[in-house]
Every structure is written in C-alpha cells, then in structure tokens.
C-alpha cells in the first residue's frame, strides 16, 4: 500500500516537472532547460582554474564539500565572453550522476511549455550551437531555445575529436 502511494507520488512529481523549463539568458537569447535536471542555482563564486582543458571549462568549484566542474555556456556556444557580475549565475545540473555547473548571464524564470508548443529545430548543417538545441518552445510571441542537457555533457568528446581531426 505504502509502496503504491509512494510510486504514485513519484509519478506525480515527474508529471509536475514535465513541461517545466528554467529559462536563462545569454545576451539577447533566451534558453530553457528541463527543470528535472536542475539541482540548484547559485551565484558566481570562486572558481579554481584547471589547466589543460578547453576554454569553456572554467574550472572547479566547491559546492558544500563537493567538487564540481563549471563550464561557461557562452564560450561553449562560441559566443564572445563577458565579465561576470552579480547577475551571473551558476545553474547546477545533475545528469546521470554527473554534476556540472553552467555559467549563464542570468536566470529568468520557470516556464510551462506544453509539448504541442515545442517544435523541432530547423536543421542547419553548419550551425555550431544547433546541436545542443532539442527544440524550440513558443511562449506567447517569444521563442525559447530548449537545450539538450545530455548533449552538453556528452557531446564534448565528439566535438573535440572532430576539431582535432580538422587540425
């Protein structure tokens, strides 16, 4: 009985999280990530630089005794870097037990975007950032670029391998 109830709760929880996106800004663009990946949002803090990693990996931070890497989403998407200020945030996400912090310009809000308001992205073959976009959500007149978190974490190897090959 208790089990059934807790199972129901889990299902409910998933349901309440479904279709919810945390949106953040990079320059003028608004991106969204599925809320279920997000563990917390923290302000920018002291980052320990780690050598010999791609530019967008800014280093590691101490999150209450846990050491987690942080990446600058701007640099990851090939945008020009900006200085961090007090609006800069680190969104800590947890994907398949890998914790990672995403540095973004600022966090906006949590939005409900139903499935039928999400369209797949157009397939530009050359678009660099495109491969991290899972879909485009429509909210009123605005569009939000919905990120594929798993790709942000895993795709790295591929892009780098490709880059190396190109060189």
């Amino acid at each position: 009985m208790a089990e059934a109830v807790s199972k129901q709760l889990v299902v409910q929880e998933e349901d309440t999280q479904h279709g919810k996106f945390l949106t953040f800004q990079l320059g003028n663009e608004v991106y969204g990530i599925e809320i279920r990946y997000v563990t917390e949002i923290i302000g920018i803090q002291q980052i320990t630089y780690v050598p010999e990693v791609p530019k967008y990996v800014k280093g590691i931070i101490n999150l209450r005794g846990k050491v987690i890497p942080v990446i600058d989403v701007r640099l990851k998407f090939g945008k020009p870097p900006v200085d961090y200020d007090d609006r800069t945030c680190i969104i800590v996400i947890d994907i398949n037990d890998t914790q990672i912090g995403l540095i973004v310009d600022c966090v906006s809000e949590v939005l409900n975007i139903s499935d039928d308001n999400i369209v797949p992205p157009p397939s530009y073959k050359t678009g660099f950032q495109n491969k991290y976009i899972k879909g485009i959500g429509k909210v009123g007149n605005a569009v939000k670029l919905l990120l594929d978190c798993e790709k942000i974490i895993s795709e790295n190897d591929n892009t780098e391998a490709v880059e190396k090959l190109d060189n």
Partner: peptide, 11 residues
C-alpha cells in the same frame, strides 16, 4: 578525486 567530467581531459 577530480570530478568525473574532467577525466576526459589529460589533466
């Protein structure tokens, strides 16, 4: 240990 994510780089 360093985070798993960084293991892919030759740190």
């Amino acid at each position: 240990p360093l985070p798993k994510y960084l293991a892919r780089y030759s740190i």
